[in-house]
Structure formats: structure tokens, C-alpha cells
Design a protein around this nucleic acid. Structure first.
Length: 843
DNA sequence: GTCTCCCGCCAGACT
DNA sequence: AGTCTGGCGGGAGAC
């Protein structure tokens, strides 16, 4: 796997030629692809290029064609020459480290030779693996490079040897003489927001992506004040969540749909649609007889105190602004009307004098929303000419499941409280049925957010990829025979053993369970579901493999091996291990103190975990991340959730198990020789495991040639003796780990949930966030196999200190907070770890 | 001239 | 007291 010579977009495919034209075009050409694939790739490149240079036409793309190692290497070199600030960003993404030092940020970027950058450093490997595991992250990484700060671009020019790799931004800089200050547009909030968004995946696989405002502001080269503007708007849509001072967590667009639905409902409750109608008729609202937010807020004495400064929060304003769109028939809102409505709501005596200010703020909000692709600027005609307005272009149908809505609406706090989507009293006028469940917490520095996302962890795939691909999720392991799903919990179509398989509809089975009762299964194995056969992976199919406990064991071993092999490298893992040890100790002490009920419960769970390996672990990166502030507070919430869930009064907590074992198979996107997915638990000799600790590795078919296609470990392997290779192309194999996995069963095989092909971000939200839409007629409930035992409880530093003293609260994608922290955490073998899996119902 | 919205002051909130 | 947040409006670039 020649990763460093791979296209950052179609990463796994080796030998991609990457080329940046001076005009800003980006060309990727797959050297060994047919024309159709190549064309497709060009389209991808075009979209990427457009991202960089919207003005360029496709004709600007130069088809380089064929292999050109020299240029390819140049491109690699180009990537390596990304100056410090970008590296810093990447590093932060990877490790969630502290902000780069001023020396880094302002110093002259060091040439790669000086830096001695080795593409095969553990960091590089990690990035590579993360990139492979997450197309979305890969995209973001790419965008990060593209949106690097201007200073870096200047610096980049310094190190550019041949000058062939230039982006438009740089060109503009050059055209302006280089010394001239950036234009107003270049400093616009919208562009800044795009840069910001480019740092993070739209659909992260976990909620462990932390955002440090300091880091972001330094990375993007702007003052923190500007970041506030962005995150406030993003927070209003639950794209980010504030977890502590200066710390946010990235949720991405996973909750966007449900958030919008919630806002729409709130907007209707606020009768904003009436406001809009009246405003539309008379240019402004006249005596709309509705409750104003402040009226509701004042009814709540606890909220009244907060209705001063927070009243004017950009956050609240943003939500209200979005509401206006969502309740509007035309979905078009003029700033004029919006400002007036918002001013009247504020009931500020001097509000009318604030009109200008409101409009300013609305511009700020609109810029962010535009960057999010939710609105676009239009003009509406009026008697006196045309008026600037914004039209909603975001998802129109975001109706979500009850669970989904609740996930947004009821954001559980560590103490069991719930925080509603809107923190402000402005929203407290909603019917009590809803409002009563909400608490307003506007304390900026309090641990405010915890998303008990009831959605299964979203499949992490880029929109780009999914737009043309089917998504299939395979669940591995952890199913218990006869296990019943908790009432009210998420359910999946299951085999008798609880396995299930989720596939895209309209496609021939993307995955066929290797299942004892399944038609493709060989002799019964004591550990069913060892392998998945993907007979008809459509183009760019994405397969997500979810590791079960057994997989985690394999991962554990792998991690141990990796760490051992890394020798001295205490590094992060080592440090985390220490932290973990301390946590373990505290946890043990805590176990002895906790209530009898909890203790008993834990005992039961522990007992269960001892009984079956399928219950021994959970690999929620967040939970498992030793660096996570998952102290005591984090322990109890999952326990509580589990308890609730098991008695059927609580939906399964989210993110208990992250898709720690997942890989995708962009079949037609350039994986001709890389169609094998091998769990890290399956580590046949000769396979090189990069220093990264992702649980799975991509293995080319050629690499696997010495190995039997029926690559399952242990007895299972022996038992599965039908010749897969005779049945299908090796390009369709998913290989289980050395330890048994449970592979979900397909509907055709008694339990397949079918999801429609995804073609839009919204569909991603609806379907990508889970194997199936929560209310899919085919499958009313998402699979239960991966249970999120851990409530995503952002913690304040204080809590974190109490819980283990780790410095890192959240891990950025690259920080191993997702997949790569899992191995470390899995060593815990602690009560918590067991608990997280132990909630699997066994009755 | 109007539209946009960057910029940074400064005060409330929080640590 | 120091730091974080973010409201606010002047004023200038863009149109």
C-alpha cells in the first residue's frame, strides 16, 4: 500500500496521480482505471476544484492521464510541504493537542527536508489510516490543505519548487502583489466558516472531535472573536456543542435534521409562520398575537435572570432566524422582516434603533448558514425595488423519528438533567409537554452538553462517496443468542441470534451474512457470522464493519503489538495508558462506594461479561479514550442509561460503541486491488500493520493471495470451508477477524434492513446516521448490536480532573479518539468497559 | 447611496 | 483579578 502516493480523495487506491494546476485545478488521475472510473474521479476532482476555485470551469481541468510518478511525487512533496500551520491543524486534528505555539504559527515554515518529515511516521500512518477509514475525514483533510491560512500560502510559495501547485487563493494573493492585505472577501465570515467547516467531517463517527477555539483561531489565522460568531451559529444547530470554556465538541450534521425539525416545531409554536405571513403581507408584523419569548422567559424566573445578555445571543438569534425559514411557505426571509420580527420579540423599547445592529447580526448568521449550505442569498422584489433576502436551500424534509428528535431535544446532562435544544427562555413558551422536559442552562462554562444521541453512530462516509454509493453496515459480534431487545429500544431485524444486516435497497444484496442459518453459510460454527460476502458491491459501495468484543480483543492484541513495536514511544498512548491506570484505580474505588443498586447491577453486568466474550468489551472511543474526561461522572451516566434502557423506559444510549471496526470499499472508485477488508484482529503474518492503531487494515488481494480466502480465525475458520473464491470475486470479500464476529443478516435472510441509496446530506442524516431510517417501514428500529453505553457527556476540566485528570477531554478524529484510542481503552477491562457492553439484554 | 459586514472595543459572565 | 464571551456599532469595502 503506497499510501503516500495515493490520492487524498480516493485514498486507498495506490498510484494516483495528483496534480494541481497553477490555475487552481486539481486533477487526480487513476493510472489503472478505466475511462469511466477516471471520469468519475475527475468529477470528484472538479467538485474539489470548485471548492477551491468556483470560477473555474471543468474545462480547466487538465487531464494528465497515465501514471506520472514524477509528478505524483511532486504532489506528495507538495503535501509534505504544507507549512506549519496546516500541519498544526492536522496535528490538532490528530491529537487534540494544544494550540500551536506562536513560533510555529508565525515562524517561517520549515522546508520538508529540514523538518525531516517522514511520510511513514506514526502520525503519517495514523492520518493515512484515518483517512482510509473515513472518506469524510479524508475530504476534510484535503480541504484543510486547500483552505490553509493565507500566511501559509505565502510560505508555501517559498518552498514551492516548481510553482505548479497553486490555488486560486494564492493566485489572488499574487495578483494583489502579495504584500497587500487580504481583501474584504477573503476575510469574510462566510469564507472563514467554510474553512472552519472544512476542518471537520460532516458526519463524524463519534462525538470525540474536540474544538479548541484557540486552536481553531490560530489555525485559521483569525482572532477568536470571529470564531465565536461561527460556533455560536453552529451551536444553535447542534453542529457543535459547547462542553467547556473554550472547548467545543463537533457533532457535524448528524443532528442537523432533527435540530431543524425541532426548530420548525418551535417556530410553529412561536407562530412564526403567522409572523411571516403578516410580515409578508404588510412588510412587517402588526400586532401578531403571539407569545414573545420574553414573555415566556419571564414566566420562568430562573430564566429571567438570564434574559439579559443571552437574550441577544447570536445563538438564539440564529435559531429564530432558521425558524423563520422553516415555517415560511416560501422559505424565503428578508433580513428586513427577520430583523423586525426579532426586534419586536425583544420588546426592547429602543429596539427600533437597534434595527441596524440586528441586520448586522443577521448578516453574520446568514453568512454562516450560507456556508453550511442551508440558505442562499436571493433578492425579492418590492414596490421600492428589490430587497436582499435569503432562501432556504437546506433539507426540506427532515422529519425525524421520535428518538431522533428526543436526542436533540433532550440533551442529557451529566446529572441526568436534560437540556433542550434552545437554552434560552425565548423558547420556553412552547407547550409544557415539551418545555417541561427542558431546562435552560445558559451558563457558558458549565458542562452543558451531552448528547444522548439515540441514533446509532452514523456511518462515516463522505457525501461524495455516498451520493453514488450504497451504504451497507455490517454488524459484528456481541449478539447474544436469544437476546431480546429492550422494549422501546432500538431494534433491528435479527436472526434468531440477533444478527442482522443492513443494506441499501434496490440493490442486490450488498452483504450476505455468513450465517449458520443463512444460505451462504458453511457448517455451523460456534461463532456464527465470521465473514461477510459482498457479492454485488455497487460502485463506490461503502461497507462499515462494526467490531464486536471479539474484534476488540484482536484489536487489543494488535494495539499491544503496535505499542510494543513502537518501543520507546510512550507518546500519547503511553501517557493515556498511565491516565487510564489512574482512572482504573479510581474506578475501582468508586465501585466500592457506589450504591448497592449500582453495584449489584454492575456485578450482574460483570458477570455477564465473564460469561461470554461477546459481552466483555465495548469500544466506544469516547468511553474508552483514557484521555477522555470519562471520570466518575461519565461512568454513572451510561450505567443509568443502561438501566433505563433495559427496563424499556429509555432508548439505548448513543455512542456506546463506536464503529471501531470499519472500512469501506469504494469498489469502483479505485480499489481494484484493495477490496479486501481485514479486521485488525486478523493479522496474518506478512501483513503489514501500520503504526497507526486502526483496528482494520486494508489488504490488497495480492497481499492476501497466500492466505485462504476464508480468513476466519480459529475454529471458525476451519468450519467455514466453502470456497468463496469460487463464488465471487475476491474484490468482494470482507474478512472477519481471527475471533468470531457476528455479521448482520440480510433481510432476505431474515433480517435485512434496507436503506435507500443516499444521495444527499439529508439522506445521510436520515439513513447514514444509522443503518436505516429510524422509522423505516422495513425496519422500524436500528440495530441494537452496537449499543452506546456511554452518554456523550462533555465534561468540564474540573470534571475531567475528578474523573482521571486527563488533559484531553475530547479527541479529534486524528487523536485516536475514534478508532485509535479504542485499543488503549480496551485494555481497561474495567467495570466500566464491561458495563458498556454488559447492557446487552440477555433475557 | 446602499448594502455588507469586518473589526475591535468593552462589559458581563465566568474561573 | 484574570480570562472568556459576545453584544455592539463605527466605519469602510463592495456593489
Amino acid at each position: 500500500m503506497s499510501a503516500t502516493h495515493s490520492c487524498p480523495i480516493c485514498f486507498p487506491e495506490p498510484r494516483k496521480l495528483i496534480r494541481w494546476n497553477r490555475s487552481g485545478s486539481v486533477v487526480y488521475t487513476c493510472s489503472n482505471k478505466d475511462s469511466e472510473t477516471r471520469k468519475k474521479m475527475e468529477v470528484e476532482c472538479l467538485s474539489l476544484r470548485d471548492l477551491i476555485s468556483p470560477k473555474k470551469s471543468k474545462a480547466d481541468i487538465e487531464d494528465v492521464g497515465g501514471r506520472n510518478d514524477q509528478k505524483e511525487n511532486r504532489c506528495v512533496e507538495r503535501r509534505r510541504t504544507t507549512p506549519h500551520k496546516m500541519d498544526t491543524t492536522a496535528t490538532m486534528l490528530l491529537y487534540g493537542s494544544k494550540a500551536p505555539t506562536p513560533e510555529h504559527l508565525h515562524g517561517t515554515p520549515v522546508k520538508p527536508s529540514e523538518r525531516g518529515a517522514d511520510p511513514w511516521t506514526p502520525t503519517a500512518n495514523l492520518r493515512m489510516l484515518i483517512s482510509a477509514a473515513s472518506p469524510d475525514i479524508r475530504d476534510r483533510e484535503m480541504k484543510k490543505v486547500l483552505f490553509r491560512p493565507i500566511e501559509n500560502e505565502r510560505a508555501l510559495e517559498d518552498v514551492e519548487v516548481d510553482g505548479t501547485c497553486q490555488f486560486d487563493v494564492v493566485d489572488e494573493e499574487e495578483e494583489e502583489g502579495g504584500e497587500t492585505k487580504p481583501s474584504r472577501k477573503q476575510k469574510s465570515l462566510g469564507l472563514l466558516c467554510q474553512k472552519f467547516l472544512a476542518l471537520y467531517p460532516d458526519y463524524p463517527t463519534s462525538d470525540t472531535i474536540s474544538i479548541s477555539l484557540d486552536e481553531v483561531s490560530t489555525s485559521l489565522g483569525v482572532e477568536r472573536r470571529r470564531i465565536y460568531d461561527i460556533v455560536n451559529v453552529l451551536e444553535s444547530l447542534m453542529i457543535v456543542g459547547r462542553v467547556a470554556k473554550n472547548q467545543y465538541v463537533w457533532y457535524g450534521r448528524r443532528h442537523l435534521g432533527s435540530t431543524l425539525a425541532e426548530l420548525q416545531g418551535m417556530g410553529r409554536q412561536q407562530r412564526y409562520h403567522l409572523h411571516m405571513e403578516q410580515a409578508g403581507e404588510g412588510g412587517h408584523r402588526e400586532g401578531a398575537t403571539t407569545h414573545t419569548p420574553e414573555e415566556g422567559g419571564e414566566a420562568d424566573s430562573s430564566c429571567a435572570a438570564a434574559s439579559t445578555r443571552k437574550d441577544k445571543s447570536l445563538r438564539i438569534m440564529s435559531q429564530k432566524f432558521v425558524m423563520l425559514f422553516l415555517v415560511s411557505r416560501t422559505q424565503t426571509v428578508t433580513l428586513d422582516v427577520a430583523a423586525k420580527i426579532l426586534i419586536e420579540e425583544s420588546q426592547d423599547p429602543a429596539s427600533h434603533s437597534k434595527y441596524k445592529t440586528k441586520v448586522r447580526r443577521l448578516y453574520d448568521i446568514a453568512n454562516v448558514l450560507t456556508s453550511l449550505g442551508l440558505i442562499k442569498k436571493v433578492h425579492v422584489r418590492e414596490e421600492r425595488g428589490r430587497k436582499p433576502a435569503f432562501k432556504w436551500i437546506g433539507p426540506a424534509d427532515f422529519h425525524t423519528s421520535h428518538e431522533d428528535s428526543e436526542a436533540v431535544e433532550a440533551i442529557a446532562l451529566p446529572g441526568g438533567r436534560k437540556q433542550k435544544l434552545a437554552r434560552h427562555a425565548s423558547f420556553s413558551v412552547v407547550p409544557t409537554s415539551v418545555a417541561s422536559q427542558r431546562l435552560v442552562n445558559s451558563a457558558p462554562s458549565s458542562p452543558r452538553r451531552e448528547v444522548t444521541g439515540l441514533l446509532p453512530q452514523p456511518v462515516d462516509y463522505s457525501r461524495k462517496c455516498v451520493s453514488s454509493s450504497a451504504v451497507c453496515r455490517l454488524r459484528f459480534g456481541t449478539t447474544v443468542t436469544g437476546a431480546s431487545r429492550p422494549s422501546g429500544g432500538l431494534r433491528s431485524p435479527t436472526h434468531s441470534d440477533g444478527s442482522s444486516l443492513l443494506c441499501s435497497p434496490g440493490l442486490s444484496p450488498l452483504a450476505v451474512p455468513i450465517h449458520p442459518e443463512g444460505p451462504y453459510v458453511g457448517p455451523l460454527s460456534p461463532h456464527p457470522h465470521h465473514m461477510a460476502y459482498l457479492p454485488s458491491l455497487s460502485q463506490a459501495s461503502v461497507v462499515m464493519l462494526y467490531g464486536g468484543p471479539a474484534a476488540q480483543e484482536g484489536l487489543h492484541r494488535l494495539t499491544t503489538e503496535v505499542q510494543r513495536s513502537s518501543g520507546s514511544g510512550e507518546g500519547i498512548l503511553g501517557k493515556r495508558k498511565r491516565d487510564e491506570g489512574a482512572e482504573e484505580e479510581k474506578r475501582a474505588k468508586k465501585d466500592t462506594r457506589e450504591s448497592p443498586e449500582l453495584s449489584e447491577e454492575r456485578k450482574v453486568v460483570d458477570g455477564r461479561s465473564v460469561e461470554g466474550n461477546s459481552l466483555q468489551m465495548t469500544t466506544s472511543p469516547r468511553t474508552s479514550s483514557p484521555g477522555h474526561p470519562g471520570g466518575q461522572a461519565r461512568e454513572e451516566a451510561p450505567l443509568r442509561d443502561i438501566r433505563d434502557w433495559e427496563v424499556g423506559r429509555h432508548s439505548p444510549p448513543n455512542n456506546q460503541v463506536q464503529p471501531s471496526h470499519y472500512l469501506y470499499v469504494p469498489n469502483s472508485a479505485g480499489l481494484n486491488s484493495l477490496n479486501f477488508l481485514l479486521s485488525a484482529g486478523q493479522t496474518p503474518d506478512g501483513l503489514t500493520l501500520p503504526a497507526g492503531t486502526l483496528p482494520c487494515v486494508l489488504v490488497s488481494s495480492s497481499t492476501l493471495s497466500p492466505y485462504p480466502l476464508m480468513a476466519n480465525g480459529g475454529d471458525a475458520h476451519a468450519n467455514l470451508n466453502f470456497n468463496m473464491s469460487a463464488m465471487m470475486s475476491p474484490a468482494c470479500f470482507v474478512m472477519g477477524a481471527a475471533v468470531p464476529y457476528a455479521v448482520a443478516g440480510a433481510p432476505e435472510f431474515s433480517g435485512l434492513a434496507v436503506a435507500p441509496a443516499l444521495s444527499s446530506p439529508e439522506q445521510h442524516r436520515l439513513f447514514g446516521s444509522g443503518p436505516i431510517p429510524p422509522h423505516s417501514p422495513l425496519e422500524p428500529r436500528p440495530p441494537l448490536t452496537f449499543i452506546q453505553a456511554e452518554t456523550q457527556t462533555p465534561q468540564t476540566p474540573k470534571e475531567a480532573a475528578a474523573g482521571g485528570g486527563s488533559k484531553a477531554f475530547f479527541q479529534t478524529p486524528g487523536t485516536l479518539g475514534t478508532a485509535t484510542t479504542t485499543p488503549v481503552a480496551r485494555r481497561r477491562g474495567s467495570a466500566q468497559r464491561r458495563l458498556e457492553i454488559g447492557h446487552l439484554p440477555t433475557n
